[in-house]
């Protein structure tokens, strides 16, 4: 288990299936994450630790954030339809 020291960076590649969600994920992590900063070129993340941080934990957090964004975008029509139905009643 490798730990990133404060100021150390890590590059995380993103598979093509999740690429459409990279920018929005980076934007969100940019203000929500306290423990590391995030930059992206659209296909990968460069993560820089603000404090010592376990590398696997960072990778897991990034993966979870990407999945959250994917779920949010893909389920938006279903959610909108549901709210539309409710508002008609």
């Amino acid at each position: 288990m490798k730990t990133l020291t404060a100021g150390e960076s890590l590059d995380i590649e993103v598979g093509s299936g999740l690429a459409p969600y990279v920018e929005a994920t980076a934007l969100r992590l940019g203000y929500a994450e306290q423990l590391f900063s995030v930059q992206t070129d659209g296909s990968r993340f460069r993560v820089t630790a603000r404090a010592p941080f376990d590398r696997e934990a960072i990778e897991r957090r990034i993966a979870h954030a990407l999945y959250r964004e994917k779920i949010r975008v893909e389920s938006a029509p279903l959610r909108a339809r549901f709210l539309e139905l409710l508002s008609q009643r």
Binding site: R61, R68, I71, S75
Partner: peptide
């Protein structure tokens, strides 16, 4: 089948809590 949007959070090593709206 349609799955309602599930939110989730990390609750331990390889454990996640899921919840719908």
């Amino acid at each position: 089948m349609n799955v309602w949007p599930l939110r989730f959070t990390d609750v331990g090593r390889d454990a996640l809590l899921f919840c719908d709206e």
